[in-house]
């Protein structure tokens, strides 16, 4: 079972292109349909948890499934399995990437790839934007941070995005607390 956890997640890590969200479908297929390690309901519960916690979604899923099947050791092996392909492949690539980049044609290719990276990031961003609740608070937080990020870049201001994330989270809790106390005040009248 331990080995099977390791190899299953190794395979998932090896064959998932395009980041964590592509991985969700792969994990479901193997873990729910093929092996029945967790039920469909539990799978959706796991995705909710993975999306509510920080970090790569692949790692969250591997840890979760591993723990369910074989406790802490299981989760360690599943997580190791899912990151090992990346470690091996990227280590190999980094050995010759510099020499590779010095090649004239590779440099030409990267002039184009730069645009593709911008395209992929903008696309991921617009997909997420569509899912944002269209409420004034979340839209104004979005707009404020977007404009600030651009201004900081233009004027080379160093500011850690971690603070933006914390500010957003605190605003979220404050908004909740205000909405709740407003509601209670309304009920008391």
């Amino acid at each position: 079972m331990l080995l099977s956890l390791f190899f299953t997640f190794f395979k998932i890590g090896l064959f998932t292109f395009g980041g964590g969200y592509a991985m969700i479908a792969n994990v479901r297929e193997v873990v729910v349909e093929k092996y029945g390690w967790i039920t469909e309901d539990e799978f959706f519960q796991m995705i909710t948890i993975a999306e509510s916690t920080p970090g790569p979604i692949a790692i969250n899923m591997a840890t979760y499934v591993g723990y369910r099947k074989k406790g802490v050791l299981g989760s360690a092996l599943a997580t190791l399995g899912v990151i090992l392909p990346s470690l091996i492949i990227i280590y190999a690539i980094s050995q010759f990437l510099d020499a590779f980049m010095a090649n004239r044609y590779v440099a030409y290719a990267f002039v184009g790839i730069k645009s593709a990276v911008a395209f992929l990031i903008l696309k991921a961003g617009t997909d997420l934007f569509r899912k944002l609740p269209k409420q004034w608070l979340s839209l104004s937080v979005f707009l404020a941070i977007f404009v600030l990020m651009i201004l900081f870049e233009l004027f080379s201001v160093n500011f850690s995005s971690i603070f933006f994330i914390l500010i957003g989270g605190i605003l979220g809790i404050l908004a909740y607390a205000f909405a709740k106390s407003g509601k209670e005040a309304g009920e008391n009248q």
């Binding site: 997420l128 839209l139 990020m149």
Partner: peptide, 11 residues
């Protein structure tokens, strides 16, 4: 809920 718009803005 508060973090979400920040992440979208960062991306």
């Amino acid at each position: 809920k508060g973090v979400k718009p920040v992440v979208v803005a960062l991306i």
